[in-house]
Simulated scan of single mutants.
Amino acid sequence: MKYTLNQLHIFLKIVQTQSVTRASEELHLTQPAVSIQLKNFQEQFEIPLTEVIGRRIYITDFGKEIAEAAEKIINQVYALNYKTLAFKGKLTGRLKISVVSTGKYILPYFLADFMKQHSGVDLFMDVTNKEKVVDSLVHNEVDFALVSILPTSLNIEQIDLLHNKLFLVNDKKTKFKKDVTITEIFESLPLIFRERGSGTRQIMEQFMERNNISALKKMELTSNEAVKQALLAGLGCSIMPLIGIKNELHNNELQIIPIKGLPITSTWSLIWLKGKKHSHVSTSFLDYLRKEKNQIIQDKFNWYNRY
């Protein structure tokens, strides 16, 4: 057999995502390139690794066993690399963080200099909704999770990073009278929600319940970026995190509608299970954050205070 580490990595990603398309996206490769590598890898085995039914790919039992072996091989390669770097006195290892979707706008700034200082550290950052983020923490699949709503069912520790401000947002073309109420707005415009399981959705629903507000027309979209594009297209309004619309506000494409009771404020916090035994890498990252977070906020999020 002449399979390569690259083929093992690609096949493992296909198994993990259950999709050639999603695997190609996560690997930053074209779909044809991933398909060719899967074909070349499959040709080295007499037993099928996958089967396609309709337009969906399924992993065979044999394929699952090969994926397990591939993961072990890849981990051993990582271990060899880490040992080499560690022997040179460098910080080495993997840092695994699960991030709520709006957190992708802030966490990279808290990671950038740390990653530059430690070239022997590999980063795994999974961006998903709050429900899946908490689940990855519960199953100890990650070192940390970044959330804007603290899970009440877990015994956790935390370091607070940045306030999360949510405003009522609409496209710039729509005009409102000066004293418009949120009830009047929701009577004429659809309210765009995130999907269930999203922290932003939870904050929106709690705000509407507290203020006895209902929306006559509703839309549901599965990502913050999709909501933003719907706003830009004029499909409705939404309560959105300020952090995700910086460029659109600057370019005069979206507007914040001043409404009593808004913004809603929560806090993005990096959390971990209480009592977790941190690796040297994750301990070093926590030390870095405690020392540098205020300077990072001042340097990277100074614009935030204007709203």
Rank of each mutant, 00 (worst) to 15 (best):
K2I: 09
K2C: 06
Q7N: 10
L8S: 06
H9F: 13
F11Q: 05
F11P: 02
V15M: 07
Q16L: 14
S19E: 13
S19R: 08
S19W: 09
T21K: 14
T21M: 10
A23K: 07
A23E: 08
S24V: 07
S24P: 14
T30Y: 07
Q31N: 02
A33P: 06
S35K: 08
K39E: 15
K39M: 14
F41R: 02
F41I: 02
E43D: 10
E43H: 12
E46G: 07
V52N: 15
I53A: 14
R56T: 15
F62K: 09
V77W: 05
V77Q: 15
V77S: 11
L80P: 02
Y82S: 10
F87Q: 15
F87L: 14
G93K: 06
G93C: 14
I97L: 11
V99M: 09
V100R: 01
S101T: 09
K104W: 15
K104C: 02
K104V: 06
L107S: 01
F110K: 04
L111G: 05
F114Q: 04
Q117C: 04
G120Q: 08
V121Y: 05
L123V: 10
M125I: 11
K132C: 05
V134W: 03
D135H: 11
S136P: 03
H139Q: 05
N140M: 13
V142W: 03
D143R: 06
F144I: 08
I149M: 08
L150C: 06
L150D: 10
L154D: 07
E157P: 02
E157Q: 15
K165P: 03
D171G: 12
K175T: 10
K175N: 10
K175E: 14
F176E: 01
K177W: 03
K178I: 06
D179S: 15
D179Y: 03
V180H: 00
E187Q: 13
E187A: 09
S188E: 15
L189H: 02
P190I: 05
F193K: 03
Q202R: 11
E205Q: 12
E205M: 12
M208K: 08
E209D: 12
R210S: 07
L216T: 15
L221R: 02
T222D: 11
K228M: 07
L232K: 05
A233W: 08
I239C: 10
G244R: 00
I245C: 09
H250F: 13
Q255P: 03
I257E: 03
P258T: 00
I259Q: 00
L262S: 00
T267Q: 14
I271V: 12
G275L: 11
K277R: 10
K277T: 10
V281A: 09
S282P: 11
L286S: 03
Y288N: 06
Y288Q: 06
R290I: 12
Q295R: 15
Q295S: 13
I297Y: 04
D299P: 00
W303P: 05
N305V: 06
Y307R: 00
Y307G: 02
Y307W: 10
